[in-house]
Amino acid sequence: MSNQNSTSPAVSSLHDEQAKQRSDDGQLQQGLEDTFPASDPVSHTMTTTATPTITSENTDDMEDTPKVDEALAAVRARSHTPTVSASGRIAGREIRSVRQTIADQVREHPLSALGLAALAGYVWGMTR
């Protein structure tokens, strides 16, 4: 039978770890105190900010700033100018090319175009 006063190396290691953690408790407490404002709950009160008051001295500076109406007019003027990108121009040309090709095919083969349109109309009507 083993002696009860002697402890195994695992038990003594556990006791050493626990003692070390207890001695480190002061560092943990100091760390919590150092970060205390960050751990406060969110305040439910509303704060207001001070707004500048307009005085006669400030009105001279405000004359140089752009007015809201002028800014809106500038935005409207820019939005009415046509700005088409290169890809938009290419897509427009392709659409016109396809439209012209279809028109040429209908002129060359009117009966085939009429039959194809009738078939497409019949299929579309059956799906409704």
Results as ranks from 00 to 15, higher is better:
residue 4 Q to N: 11
residue 6 S to K: 15
residue 7 T to H: 14
residue 7 T to P: 06
residue 10 A to E: 14
residue 11 V to C: 05
residue 12 S to G: 08
residue 13 S to F: 01
residue 14 L to V: 11
residue 14 L to W: 01
residue 16 D to P: 00
residue 16 D to L: 07
residue 16 D to H: 02
residue 19 A to P: 00
residue 19 A to T: 02
residue 21 Q to A: 03
residue 23 S to T: 05
residue 24 D to Y: 02
residue 27 Q to P: 01
residue 28 L to Y: 02
residue 28 L to G: 02
residue 28 L to F: 03
residue 29 Q to P: 00
residue 30 Q to F: 03
residue 32 L to N: 07
residue 32 L to Y: 02
residue 33 E to F: 04
residue 33 E to T: 04
residue 36 F to D: 00
residue 37 P to M: 00
residue 38 A to W: 00
residue 40 D to Y: 09
residue 40 D to N: 11
residue 40 D to Q: 06
residue 41 P to I: 01
residue 41 P to E: 01
residue 41 P to S: 04
residue 42 V to C: 08
residue 44 H to L: 13
residue 45 T to D: 13
residue 47 T to C: 11
residue 49 T to G: 11
residue 52 P to E: 11
residue 52 P to G: 11
residue 52 P to K: 06
residue 53 T to N: 14
residue 56 S to N: 14
residue 58 N to C: 14
residue 62 M to I: 15
residue 62 M to F: 10
residue 63 E to K: 14
residue 65 T to E: 14
residue 65 T to H: 15
residue 67 K to E: 14
residue 68 V to K: 12
residue 69 D to G: 15
residue 69 D to I: 15
residue 72 L to K: 13
residue 79 S to M: 15
residue 80 H to V: 14
residue 80 H to E: 15
residue 82 P to D: 13
residue 83 T to E: 14
residue 84 V to Y: 07
residue 86 A to N: 06
residue 87 S to N: 07
residue 87 S to A: 09
residue 87 S to D: 15
residue 89 R to S: 12
residue 92 G to L: 08
residue 93 R to T: 00
residue 93 R to D: 03
residue 96 R to K: 07
residue 96 R to I: 00
residue 96 R to V: 00
residue 97 S to M: 07
residue 97 S to N: 13
residue 98 V to Q: 03
residue 98 V to H: 00
residue 99 R to P: 02
residue 99 R to Q: 08
residue 102 I to K: 13
residue 103 A to P: 09
residue 104 D to P: 01
residue 104 D to R: 05
residue 104 D to G: 09
residue 106 V to S: 06
residue 106 V to H: 01
residue 106 V to G: 03
residue 109 H to Q: 07
residue 110 P to M: 02
residue 111 L to F: 05
residue 112 S to M: 05
residue 112 S to F: 06
residue 113 A to Y: 03
residue 113 A to F: 00
residue 113 A to D: 09
residue 114 L to S: 10
residue 114 L to P: 08
